[in-house]
Design a protein around this nucleic acid. Sequence first.
DNA 1: TTGAAAGCGCTAACAC
DNA 2: GTGTTAGCGCTTTCAA
Lengths: 336, 336
Amino acid sequence: MSNPSEDKLILPATLAEVARIAGVGSSTASRVLRDRGSFSNETRDKVLAAAAGLGYVPNRIAGSLASTGSQLVAVVVPSLSNIVFADLLTGATGALEERGIQCVIGVTDYDMQREEALIASMLAWRPAAIMVAGLEHTAPSLRMLSASGGRVAELIDIDGQGVDLVVGFSSRAAGVASAQHLLSRGYREIGYVGHDLERDKRASKRFAGFRDTLLDAGRPLRDLQFTLAASSVEVGRLGLEALLARSPRLDAVYFSNDDMAMGGYFHCLSRGIAIPRELALFGFNGLNIGAFAPQPLTTIRTPRFAIGKVGAELVISDAPAQTIDLGFELIDGATA
Amino acid sequence: MSNPSEDKLILPATLAEVARIAGVGSSTASRVLRDRGSFSNETRDKVLAAAAGLGYVPNRIAGSLASTGSQLVAVVVPSLSNIVFADLLTGATGALEERGIQCVIGVTDYDMQREEALIASMLAWRPAAIMVAGLEHTAPSLRMLSASGGRVAELIDIDGQGVDLVVGFSSRAAGVASAQHLLSRGYREIGYVGHDLERDKRASKRFAGFRDTLLDAGRPLRDLQFTLAASSVEVGRLGLEALLARSPRLDAVYFSNDDMAMGGYFHCLSRGIAIPRELALFGFNGLNIGAFAPQPLTTIRTPRFAIGKVGAELVISDAPAQTIDLGFELIDGATA
DNA sequence: TTGAAAGCGCTAACAC
DNA sequence: GTGTTAGCGCTTTCAA
């Protein structure tokens, strides 16, 4: 059944073969296949038939080299397990695939050195554009981004100076809004439970906005609990437990995000702490899990998908360099 | 301050320029830069210095065309919002980046036609290999995969026939194990809450294994509730509500995954349904959120990260075509 | 150890 | 409307 000759690598058909079979020149075949320039109907039919017959798949590597314009966009994110970046990528890939552009992705694991190395190796593919999360980068990264020759979009955070396009919302403003909400509800003994803010710059900016707002209102943060780990339900739960052990009189706690807040919520459920009467909880992100808890989590919903989509559309456009604030929405749930 | 000449597109340095500055031939520079073949120490130093001075970034497009071997691996997944595929991608990108290989990703949104189109356009980049979720593909997709000339890995599900490499676990066996667990705990009136199984083939296989096992044990599924939507906490919560409205005497419910099960869990909390005394819940995936709920969710933990990692390592190796079963782990939580 | 030369498969001028 | 011709920037023989 198995023909030995089939074991040899079957090289994919080339444009030249398509042209030969169609009985036309290769540039004509190229024009037809890309629907550019002019050709007769008859020619078109012949070329299309030949291509279909051969199962021709154009070689974009060669195409990009010849036209010095690759249909690739590089995307560099800190993590994929974090729904924030997953949603962002979903928005971006959707917008790009629509235009036949492929996404090359890199995951930095929140490591700036790794980001630098990734940017360098992505640039080797001469992407048409590059999208990267955040505004904080090493000096070499920044240099590479500016010199890349393509457009650059920095996503999610807009608190700072960007290289070209910046799409997101103000992390600091999100922290401020969260603090204002808690203050307006009359909470006074406020604590904070966070994860590794050294790596997560955006969470750190939210925290700063939150803390400063409380301070300005004369109600400084009573206590805080940091854990040097990635954010998770577990870290949030243990964090709140540790915080309350030290400061049992808190009446509200701000978490670095919804995963953390759900951990806190679970801690309260376990201990029979009444929410929000005994303790109010405030998260960040607006995850599905929080929205459908017995008491919907009070949080801030971020336009993650839109950031990816708008960023992608802009980065392949010729729009002027600019910063776009997509804002956020405070979800007034039942926990604060 | 701004020099008009800087506004012109600065073309990246080429190998030829590096060679010229180093005073060697371009093939020699190429050998040095890739550390292949032989050259003197003196030559090496000159070339490296020149490259560093110019900020030379090799053009992989040209490199791939010349060597007919791209350092790209294509990965096609149904979704990124689903943590399963995010973890899988994390495992895969980690293993590939280590070897300097980039990942081109495509998101099908569980649409087989879209998958087909994506495979076609990824193949245009002549990837060294292609990884795709699941074993079910359209006939043209299958043909393209086999004829791609590179290795193919089909991930997550191993219940069926693969093209080349298959890495994952048996979805059907997971469903069987879940049913056996519930039966062994003495549950007899068992229901099911699921999402759109038409699109999610793996959830459908789990369901089949579960249902058949109950049937064989003489305890057929009492009732089931499908929702034609993507899985989510919301769908799980509403699904359980609808199911219990029809069949209030159920003593256990199997959910199509942990997100759905968490929704069910939240429904029980809201209604004061005692878990597992009044109703047992069983999920699938082993998410962090379920593990740290007040009552840890009874579920099956899947090796998502490892599937991505092992799949990536295999797909760029010359290992023989094979199916690798990475298994799964039953998490005996507090909900069943 | 090194360099010249011939492509890789395609696109883009430019004649015809 | 179509074919010819030059590359794109690199790798890879193959001589030297």
